[in-house]
Amino acid sequence: MADDRPAQGPRFRWPVEWLGILPFAVFAVLFLILPTMKIVVGAFQTPEGGFTFQNIIELNTDSIRSAYWTSIKLSFVTALLGCAVGFAMAAAVVFGGLPKGIRSPLLTFSGVASNFAGVPLAFAFIATLGPVGLVTVWLRTEFGINLRAMGFNLLSFWGLVITYLFFQIPLMILIITPALDGLKREWREAAAVLGATGVQYWRMVALPILFPSILGTFALLFANAFGAVATAFALTGPQLNIVPIKLFAQIRGDVLGNPNLGYALAFGMIVITAAANFLYIWLRVRSERWLK
C-alpha cells in the first residue's frame, strides 16, 4: 500500500506508542502467557524434553476419564441450574411487579455471595447439610426425614451441585439483571398490540435478544465451576475424583507417577474451558447478526 504513495511526511516511525503498554505486556507474558505455554508445551514433552503424545495418551485411563467426565457434568449441571435459577430470580425482580426496594439489596447480596466461594462456603454447607447440620437435624427431629437414609450426601455429586450453586446463581443474577433492564418496554408493548401473547413475545423477541448474554454467562459459569478447587477440597478432601482436585494432588506430590502427566491433565482443563468459550463465541456470532 505504501508503494504507490509518494514519499511524504515521516517515512518510518518507531511504534513508540506501543511502549505505553509495555509494562502490561511484560506482566501478561510473565505471569499469564508463559506459565500457560509451559503447561501446553509440557503436555507434549517427555521428562527429558523430547516431543511425545504419550502424556495425552496416558490421560485415557478409567480414573482420569471419569474425573474429566464428573468435572464436565458438575460444571454443566451447575452452570445450567445457575443460569435457570438466576434468570428466574432476576426476572422476578425486574418484571414481577415486586417492590422496588428489593432490587438493590438482592444485587448487593449477589455481589457478596458470588465472592463467598471456596473454603468458608464449604464450612457453611457442612454446618447446614452435613451429618449434624442445621437442616439435616431439623428435618430429622421435626419431620422424621432422614436425608442420609434417603441417599443424600453432601460429599456426593449432588451435594457439590447444591454447594456450587451458592456462587453460580448470584453470578448469573449480577450479569443478567442489566441485560433484562435492557429489554425495552416498547418491545413488549409493540408485541402485545400486534396480538402476541406473553409466551410469543418471550419466544420470538425477548429470549433471542437475551440469548448471547445467557450463553456468555453459561460459558463463564462453566469455567468458574470447572476450575474451582477450594470448595470441593474443603468439602471432601483430596479423594474426590474431579479434575482440579486430581491436579491439586498431583502438584503437591506426584500421585500419578509421571510428572509430565500433570501437564497433560492441566492442558486438558485449558482445552475444555477454551472449547466452552469458543462454542460461546461461535454461537454468539451466529445469533448476533442483528448487532453491529
Binding site: T36, M37, A223, G227, V229, P244, L247, I251, Y263, T273
Partner: peptide, 16 residues
C-alpha cells in the same frame, strides 16, 4: 484469567 483456571496458572508458575 476467567477462562484459564487458577490452578493451571499456579501450576505453570511452580514449574516455570
Amino acid at each position: 484469567p476467567l477462562v484459564i483456571p487458577a490452578i493451571v496458572i499456579v501450576f505453570g508458575y511452580i514449574r516455570l
